[in-house]
Design a protein around this nucleic acid. Sequence first.
DNA 1: CTACAAAGTTAAGCATGCTTAACTTTAATG
DNA 2: CATTAAAGTTAAGCATGCTTAACTTTGTAG
Lengths: 219, 219
Amino acid sequence: MPSISKEDYLKSIYKFQNENGDSVSTADIAADLDVSNAATSDMAKKLAAQGFIKYEKYKGLKLTGKGEKIALNILRRHRLWELFLIKVLGLSWSEVHREAENLEHNTSEFLIDKIDELLNFPEFDPHGSPIPQKNGEVPKLPDMIPLSKAVEGKRYQIKNVHDESEDLINYLTKLNLVLNKKIKIIEKLNFDNSMIIENDGENITVSEKLTNSVFVTKI
Amino acid sequence: MPSISKEDYLKSIYKFQNENGDSVSTADIAADLDVSNAATSDMAKKLAAQGFIKYEKYKGLKLTGKGEKIALNILRRHRLWELFLIKVLGLSWSEVHREAENLEHNTSEFLIDKIDELLNFPEFDPHGSPIPQKNGEVPKLPDMIPLSKAVEGKRYQIKNVHDESEDLINYLTKLNLVLNKKIKIIEKLNFDNSMIIENDGENITVSEKLTNSVFVTKI
DNA sequence: CTACAAAGTTAAGCATGCTTAACTTTAATG
DNA sequence: CATTAAAGTTAAGCATGCTTAACTTTGTAG
Ligand SMILES: [Mn+2]
Ligand SMILES: [Mn+2]
Ligand SMILES: [Mn+2]
Ligand SMILES: [Mn+2]
């Protein structure tokens, strides 16, 4: 089994690969994990030596099947813990990510399966992200667009929210822009790419940073 | 905050101090944590430098107030997790210790308090050991003796079981010698210090190793 | 196609927490 | 009280995972 650090590297590589396809730059990983580029180059060699990634100097990192399996397993642990902490222990939407970031590396497969069972084998976590199943399958997300690409006058439903920033989640909670919420786009402002949307019958203005992190489906 | 290793050292020191009083030898800690004596001597210096223990070369280790506070906090985490895993997730008596050994270092104070609350602020863990409370107080155990010191013909109740050995716990479960069980001492055998006891109306023979790890009160 | 900035890698070094081997202190024995 | 075995410590070294500083490669602009 890889170390805790290696698990986090593999998870991060998976994330970027999943978002942008293909191979991932050391700089992206470094920024994501808050370590130096040098540390990431170093680790890339070790991960490649152990067969978790393909790594060509200056060309980026790419998970092997073996590496992806680990990454998905860690994501599964992370997302099951998040859901469990909300449903069973009453933690809030914004608190669970940080907690899960540690628990994901310190739980036996056995316990994870117990949690999975207690939650009745859920497919999505509290941020709308798919929970990899025990057999390795990843539930399909609906066809989403970032809220920033939504069209004036149309109605949308919130289906996924990037969960890394506690500030973002706290802000969304305050605005009551929670998962599965239905909203309407009132106006897009070219000036700063902010947006006026209708939620709970009220018009609110949201920034570009927010609209890039919230994913929606058209109703 | 101390590292995970340091937390385990402090917990171990507390355990021996609590059992045998006074100061603890490096060899005891080393055996308990399955590291070399050298590693323990090394760590003793570091723990002393940080004010967690008093350490005199060749004279043993002793927790300071600061060190004891950490040790009790880790014990609290450990024992709350054990109870939680049994009560909420249906793990078995023998499985929880190993799991808790990792979880105890990777949970926020906040989450621990939530677990405490959900369990309604319990005083004892599944092995009968006291759970240090949030305010630092340690619930009092009844006056117990090791089963090995029990007297022929008298009746006793199981009140505490050392929980480090999964084999022991599995064996006890098989014999249905569980917490709070009432038993009667039929015979003590001087030959090998084994004992014949009555449990569920049946006579069973148990070894000295077992009777030294099970603690009882006289009924 | 050259020069140069940006991106990425290598090198050297540090902290932590271990190991084994060599050495020192303690305490029990005669 | 001198000897010696047991207990404990120090020394040297290793693995992991970081850091900063120096260097190399890549790709783009002139
Ligand atoms: Mn998360
Ligand atoms: Mn993590
Ligand atoms: Mn335990
Ligand atoms: Mn532990």
